[in-house]
């Protein structure tokens, strides 16, 4: 519906050519379109509200109103502001000096944690690390089998323990890494709802037991408005360090990325775009901003074409 925001804004402003100056009403019309585009992209309602207020202010400045290409100017301001909000972040996996380093993954059911664990392990292996995967999901049927299979495919050791007690498996996993000279431990945990106190307690307990160097939350790119409730609760209980956005190979706009950054202050670190271990990519705020507005795919397409 909002395939091309650029064109829509062009449409709003086109009647004005030759009429001279844009009025506040024109900007209001434009802001309505932008608001819709953001909501359509699943940016959280509250975040949209604040964003529109700020952006509108900038758009009402004389240079924009008087310019010959107001639509482009408005788009540029919107993109700037969005990119700013998404944050400049270092996508590289920065490891601490402790050996073994511990990375813990958390998130809702089915968000893509287990897949992301394998992807991280694969990436680390490429960078000459020797990772260990630890299967702390003792609830989902065949969760450990899944991790074991993925580990087997990428040639990474998997620690399963007794398959009963997640805290114990995590602790033993770290010891297993020491015994087997692994320098990074990736802890896969069960999917859990942010309102499930018992399961959130468990995540905290695993955290206390292994003191991860970083905790990454895996969030599905299709997530709607609820992403703020979920990420706020995870931020409060486990205080994660960054986000992996999964399933970015679809056509969801991924407005949740913006909402999470705004609500929790936590940066997006990686995007995951496929089921295979090699599809973990760096996060680029500018591309993400364009994607959220429905203008992004072109850039990514060009860049991936160049890479191949």
């Amino acid at each position: 519906m909002l395939e091309n925001l650029s064109e829509r804004l062009q449409g709003i402003f086109s009647g004005l050519r030759g009429k001279g100056r844009l009025t506040e009403d024109d900007i209001n019309d434009a802001m309505r379109e932008i608001r819709m585009a953001l909501l359509e992209a699943d940016v959280n309602f509250k975040v949209v509200k604040g964003f529109i207020a700020r952006t509108k202010e900038r758009c009402l400045e004389a240079e924009v109103l008087d310019s010959l290409t107001p639509a482009q100017n408005v788009i540029k301001i919107v993109l700037d502001e969005l990119t700013e909000l998404l944050g400049r972040t270092d996508s590289k996996l920065v490891l601490g000096s402790r050996i073994p380093n511990v990375i813990m993954l958390v998130g809702l059911q089915g968000s893509g944690k287990t897949t992301a664990a394998a992807k991280l392990a694969y990436r680390l292996k490429q960078e000459n690390h020797s990772p260990l995967l630890v299967a702390c999901d003792v609830y989902r049927p065949a969760a450990a089998d899944q991790l074991q299979t993925l580990g087997g495919e990428i040639g990474v050791r998997v620690y399963r323990g007794d398959g009963q007690d997640p805290v114990r498996i995590a602790t033993e996993g770290v010891q297993d890494a020491i015994d087997n000279l692994r320098d990074v431990v990736i802890v896969d945990t069960a999917g859990r709802l942010h309102v499930d106190d018992e399961m959130m307690d468990e995540a905290e307990a695993i955290k206390r037991a292994v003191k991860p160097d970083q905790i990454l939350m895996v969030v599905d790119a299709m997530t709607g408005q609820d992403v703020v409730n979920v990420s706020a609760a995870f931020a409060e209980r486990v205080d994660f360090d960054g986000v992996i956005m999964s399933k970015m190979d679809g056509d969801a706009r991924g407005g949740g990325a913006l909402s999470i950054k705004q609500v929790t202050g936590k940066p997006i670190k990686f995007i995951s775009s496929g089921e295979k271990p090699d599809s973990l990519e760096e996060f680029h705020p500018d591309r993400m901003a364009k994607r959220i507005l429905g203008m992004g795919d072109v850039v990514s397409l060009i860049e991936s074409a160049v890479k191949v």
Binding site: E40, A41, M222, G224, D226, G250
Partner: peptide, 9 residues
């Protein structure tokens, strides 16, 4: 379909 799905659903 997952209830958490947004507009892409």
């Amino acid at each position: 379909i997952d209830a958490t799905t947004g507009q892409n659903g």
